[in-house]
Design a protein around this nucleic acid. Structure first.
Length: 631
RNA sequence: GGGCUCGUAGCUCAGCUGGAUAGAGCACCUCCCUUCUAAGGAGGCGGUCUCAGGUUCGAAUCCUGACGGGCUCACCA
């Protein structure tokens, strides 16, 4: 209806206003609750054109529009707003349209260009944590939303499987892993530990030993024992140490941190790790075997976690595969003058004219940095998928600058698709106690959290669920569905861009704006429909206000999907679903459905309920949240 | 210090391409299961939309500045 009115005004604008009007000056909004009407047109923009009062302008437009559309029953002008009341039969027709389409709101699959969505992208030295949950749920959901909007979507990730951090875990495992009676070191098989957890433990072990050794070095320096250390390091230490006198506490802490870095670089353990990295790059068979063995443990662990999260990928990329291509591209770019080389051999790009800095793209020793492999990975992807038009990178907002630079480099290298690449930048997840810090042990582990949330759902469901006759397996499925659904909804209902607070109590809450609240509404409707058995089709009936409100909301679903797709925002979908459920619950509570005696009214209400359940399900599907038939 | 970003009820968040009296949830207080799942519903309490200017018929929304929080400015990833 909005579109029809808009077209009408545009078509007749000269006749109505004496001049063609801008499409943007036609603004619709929802009619306020207290005022009668279904649709409101803002008339201020036209007042100036007509040089009459708002009331007069409104009356004139109102009459013109009402006379054109049969379905507009009446209009009223209230302080600059033109409110239309639309006929019940129009809304019934709309409900019928919704009802006909099993995938209402979804576009035809693959009717839009191919897009790649990257998410997750973990390091292989640490288990996944709460931050990854936000990342994974977001990426998965945005991918589903884009599919629903018609895009062909490739879900992917880049696995950060190479570099010094992996070598640290490898080294710690070699040095410190206990040997059992069979002469084996710890493995996931002989410890029963998930592979990512086991490797993560050794990363922690490395860090502990690393710090221990660094502290010993500092202690030695403070006692004046400087033999075995290079003169320039010793000088630097003395300079830093002397500069502490007379400074305040904060400044001293800063200087101490610098001293710590200095000492860390002198540790034998770091040296060994670096040697290992060099060996890895040279494909030393022993190191390479250890590397692939430990990485495979991690992948196996991650696989379980992804499975529990309910996310999946169409294609994986590994940095160990793409960083060489990155180096090739840098070499080409150096020839064409996109990059330049400094005397020490390092390669840079100058972005100062674009308001950014100079950025390193290759170290002086010729090895790749993060940027190098990201360039390589991007190009690799477009080679793999000739139909690909763009990539969406789901990565935390601490990397905003990195992606700005990456896209600019790709553009300067002449890849036209760089314009279609975007950074889905999301805010950090804070805890009530503050930031998550691995050093302080405040990181919330993804597996633990999911298990906890499911256990909580079990407890709640046993307390109040309607699960008579469920098998043990069905029960467990339900607990998982509720626990995980709640967690996903909790993390997705907030605008991705914003930093958010994770409150453990709220995340398992069942009341209010939560996943289980929405799931419950769905289960209740399904149960109602089951009880109703067969019922007739829609017929011409009068509609109650409550029913009309719901239909109005259902009708906006396609526009919501579009908005969510364009903004890469699952939160838009979550808020929509919540609104829908609130409207429905109000209706459910105050209007008889099954016990309505008038057959036509009952049918209408059942069809309405059925479609509410359908749209809830579709919307939740876009968030990766499942909805139960009973709960 | 430069760049980016955020600041809405006690708390967590919607609203932000300018539009009517700024909305939810949680928490707190009242009510409602001899009607279909009360994991529900109705109502109450609670706001100088950080502050100060500006643009506009109209500003939580746009612009400028201040204050406060976060991120970032590595031959780390």
């Amino acid at each position: 209806m909005e579109k029809e009115i808009k077209d009408l005004l545009l078509k007749h604008s000269t006749e109505l206003f004496g001049t063609p009007i801008n499409e943007n000056s036609i603004q619709f909004q929802k009619t306020r609750k207290e005022i009668e009407g279904d649709l409101t047109l803002v008339i201020f923009p036209f007042v100036k054109l007509l040089k009459t009062s708002p009331v007069e302008t409104g009356e004139r437009l109102g009459k013109f529009i009402k006379d054109t559309f049969e379905d507009i029953e009446s209009y009223s002008v209230v302080s600059g707003f033109l409110n239309f009341t639309i006929s019940g039969s129009y809304w019934l027709k709309q409900l019928n349209e919704v009802s006909k389409d099993e995938n209402y709101g979804f576009a035809r699959p693959n009717s839009r260009p191919m897009i790649m969505v990257e998410y997750s992208s973990p390091n292989t030295n640490k288990p996944l944590h709460l931050g990854h949950l936000r990342n994974n749920f977001l990426g998965y959901s945005v991918a589903e939303i884009l599919k629903a909007y018609g895009h062909e979507v490739i879900k992917t990730q880049i696995i950060n499987d190479r570099g010094i951090h992996i070598c640290k875990s490898m080294l710690a495992w070699e040095k410190f892993s206990p040997v059992n009676e069979k002469g084996e070191r710890e493995t996931p098989a002989n410890t029963g530990l998930k592979g990512d957890k086991l490797v993560g433990n050794y990363y922690v072990t490395f860090d502990r030993e690393f710090n221990k050794e660094a502290n010993e070095i500092i202690a030695a320096w403070e006692k004046g024992e400087f033999e075995n250390y290079p003169a320039e390091i010793v000088d630097e230490f003395k300079r830093l140490s002397d500069s502490k006198s007379g400074k305040d506490e904060k400044a001293i802490a800063g200087i101490d941190a610098k001293i710590k870095d200095l000492a860390k670089n002198q540790t034998s353990i770091l040296l060994e790790a670096k040697e290992m990295l060099v060996k890895w790059e040279a494909r030393d068979p022993q190191v390479y075997l250890l590397w692939s063995t430990m990485n495979n443990w991690v992948y196996e662990g991650f696989k379980q976690t992804y499975n529990a999260m309910g996310v999946d990928f169409d294609k994986l990329y590994f940095e160990s595969d793409t960083f060489l291509l990155g180096k090739d591209i840098v070499a080409e770019g150096l020839k064409t003058g996109v990059f330049y080389q400094k005397e020490d051999g390092s390669v840079w790009i100058d972005l100062t004219e674009d308001g950014l800095d100079e950025k390193l793209v290759l170290r002086s020793d010729g090895t790749a940095v993060y940027m190098t492999q990201d360039v390589g990975t991007a190009v690799d992807r477009f080679r793999d998928y000739p139909g690909l038009t763009g990539i969406i990178y789901t990565v935390g907002n601490e990397q905003d600058y990195h992606f700005k630079v990456l896209f600019m480099i790709l553009q300067k290298l002449g890849f036209e698709w760089s314009d279609n690449c975007s950074h889905l930048s999301y805010g950090m997840v804070d805890l009530p106690t503050g930031k998550m810090k691995s050093r302080e042990g405040t990181v919330v582990d993804a597996d633990d959290l999911m298990a906890e949330v499911v256990a909580q759902a079990e407890e709640m469901t046993q307390e109040r669920g309607h699960i008579e006759g469920f098998s043990a397996e069905e029960k467990n499925e339900l607990y998982t569905l509720i626990g995980l659904g709640g967690l996903k909804y909790y993390l997705l209902k907030v605008d991705p861009k914003k930093r958010m607070l994770f409150n453990p109590e709220e995340s398992i809450e069942l009341n209010g704006n939560t996943g289980p609240f929405i799931q419950y509404a769905h289960a209740r409707i399904r149960s109602l429909l089951k009880k109703a058995g067969k019922y007739g089709a829609l017929t011409e009936t009068r509609l109650l206000l409550e029913e009309k409100e719901i239909i109005k909301h259902l009708v906006t679903f396609p526009a919501i999907v579009e908005e969510a797709a364009l903004n890469h925002s699952p939160a838009v979908i979550a808020n929509y679903a919540y609104e829908l459920v609130k409207l429905y619950n109000h209706f459910y509570q105050s209007i008889p459905i099954l016990i309505e005696e008038e057959e036509e009214l009952k049918n209408t209400r059942l069809v309405l309920s059925e479609n509410v359940a359908k749209v809830i399900k579709l919307a939740m599907q876009l968030l990766g949240v499942k909805v139960p038939e009973r709960m």
